[in-house]
Every structure is written in structure tokens, then in C-alpha cells.
């Protein structure tokens, strides 16, 4: 298993390292102006030297991300359970949910900034709006994913609605819910960062990016992007890890034969 995962990791790791090396050589070899593209080593140095600023930005942004993510995803699952019993509400809400999922929701950022102020609460509100609908649509699909046979079995056991929900339908919905949870990690990061373009106290990743671009200190922008990328990947990775722990019974993990 260890040897295999190492073999799986080697090609992308080599590819990534190759890109970095080519990047460094191209920038230094052709004398690419600093404003256009700083070398990876320069970005790394900048990152090391400005850890306090980057840490403060990280804390500011992650508050909005986490609060919004938890509220948005939680509300999505709850509303899905609520409308699950009513065919009527499902028919009315789901087309709207699908429509809203395709809309440029980041546009609500200025409105939320106006309503909830410059601090992280307004960013959380944007994240709530962005994560709610994908979760709603996925969770409703997940709740109806339990097969007819299993439902019939629950009926022969004399299980009531609550028991069926807890023992059969919620567990069956988990893969769908986790799918939305994973998609929403990215959406939450995007929502919080873009909302910061519209106004923040003078701290936060989105603020840092937009001001440092204005000051032409592109290495700082890249350093912030590295932090954002690491945060996004880590967030996704944690959710994926929990998913693996919780839905270990699902076919997509069983087949791999760990």
C-alpha cells in the first residue's frame, strides 16, 4: 500500500517540481521583469519574511470561511430534510436551486458588505449564500437515493419516518452530502476572498491581494496566493479525509481494496 501510494504520488510530484524549476530558469534566464512574474525562490523568500502579515490575513479570512461554510452547509441539509416530505416544495424549490447554482452569486458580495459591515460577518454571509444551494440540491438528491428494496425492508420492520431517516436515508445520502461539502470548500474560499475585494478592515487575503496589486509588489500577491492555495487544498483534504472515515462502506472506497 505504501509503495503503491508513493508510486501514485511520484509523477504529479515530479511534474510539479519540473514546473517550478522551469519557471525559475525561465524567469532568471530571460530576465522576465519582476512585475510580470517573480521567480519561485523570490516568492518563497517573501513568504518567509512576511509570515506575521500573512498569518493575520489568514485568521481574518478563515473566520468568514468557516462560519459561512458551517451555516450554509448546515442550513442546506436541514432545508433538504424539511422539504423532503413535501413533493410540492421539492418541485417548487429544486428548479430554483438549480438556477441559483448557475448564477454569479459572488455579486451579492457588495450587498452583504453593506448589510453586515466590513468585518468577517459579511464574508460569512456571502459564503452562506454561495454554499447553501449546492448543498440543498445534493442533499435532496441524496435523500431520495436509498433504493426501493431497502425502503420496503424498513417498512416491513415497522420503522417510522424518523427511524427510516436516521437508519437508512441519511446514511445513504452521505456520499451526496460529502460531494457538496467538497465542492463547497472551494466556493467558500472564493466567496470570502472576492467579498474582501468589496471592503474589509485592512487585513485579509482578498484585501492583501487587491492592495498589493495596486502597489505593484507582485511577490507579496504570489505569497498570498500560495497561502490561499495551501488553505484551499488543506480544507478540501480534511473534508475528503472525514468522508473516507465516515463513508468507508461506499463502493468508491471499497473497490480500491486498501
Amino acid at each position: 500500500m505504501n509503495a503503491r501510494s508513493a508510486a501514485d504520488l511520484a509523477p504529479p510530484a515530479l511534474f510539479g517540481a519540473g514546473v517550478l524549476i522551469v519557471w525559475e530558469f525561465v524567469v532568471r534566464g530571460f530576465g522576465v521583469p519582476f512585475v510580470i512574474l517573480p521567480a519561485p525562490s523570490v516568492i518563497f523568500l517573501r513568504l518567509i519574511h512576511s509570515i506575521p502579515i500573512l498569518a493575520a490575513d489568514f485568521v481574518q479570512t478563515i473566520q468568514g470561511v468557516i462560519a459561512g461554510y458551517v451555516i450554509g452547509c448546515g442550513a442546506g441539509v436541514l432545508v433538504a430534510i424539511l422539504i423532503d416530505r413535501s413533493q410540492f416544495l421539492q418541485r417548487g424549490l429544486l428548479p430554483l436551486g438549480n438556477l441559483v447554482s448557475a448564477l454569479p452569486i459572488v455579486g451579492v458580495a457588495p450587498i452583504m458588505v453593506m448589510w453586515f459591515g466590513f468585518d468577517w460577518q459579511s464574508k460569512a454571509a456571502v459564503v452562506v449564500v454561495m454554499t447553501f444551494f449546492p448543498m440543498l440540491v445534493s442533499a435532496v438528491a441524496g435523500l431520495s437515493s436509498a433504493g426501493a428494496m431497502e425502503r420496503d425492508l424498513m417498512k416491513t420492520y415497522g420503522a417510522n419516518y424518523g427511524q427510516t431517516l436516521r437508519q437508512l436515508r441519511l446514511p445513504a445520502a452521505l456520499p451526496f452530502i460529502f460531494n457538496a461539502l467538497k465542492i463547497n470548500t472551494t466556493l467558500a474560499m472564493i466567496g470570502a476572498i472576492v467579498a474582501e475585494f468589496f471592503g474589509t478592515p485592512t487585513v485579509g487575503m482578498g484585501f492583501r491581494i487587491s492592495t498589493e496589486v495596486g502597489r505593484m509588489s507582485i511577490d507579496m500577491v504570489w505569497a498570498t496566493i500560495v497561502v490561499a492555495a495551501l488553505t484551499g487544498s488543506l480544507f478540501y483534504g480534511i473534508v475528503a479525509l472525514i468522508e473516507r472515515r465516515v463513508t468507508f462502506w461506499h463502493a468508491s472506497y471499497r473497490q480500491r481494496g486498501a
Binding site: T185, F197, S210, T224
Partner: peptide, 19 residues
């Protein structure tokens, strides 16, 4: 996909402006 690509937007605009 896990990276907030949109964060790059301001910078791409600036870089292309250089050209």
C-alpha cells in the same frame, strides 16, 4: 479545483497590462 483561482484575477489583469 481546490484553489481559489479567482484570487488571481487582479494579478492577471495587471500582468496583461504590462504587455
Amino acid at each position: 479545483q481546490t484553489i481559489p483561482i479567482i484570487a488571481l484575477a487582479p494579478m492577471i489583469v495587471v500582468i496583461l497590462n504590462q504587455f
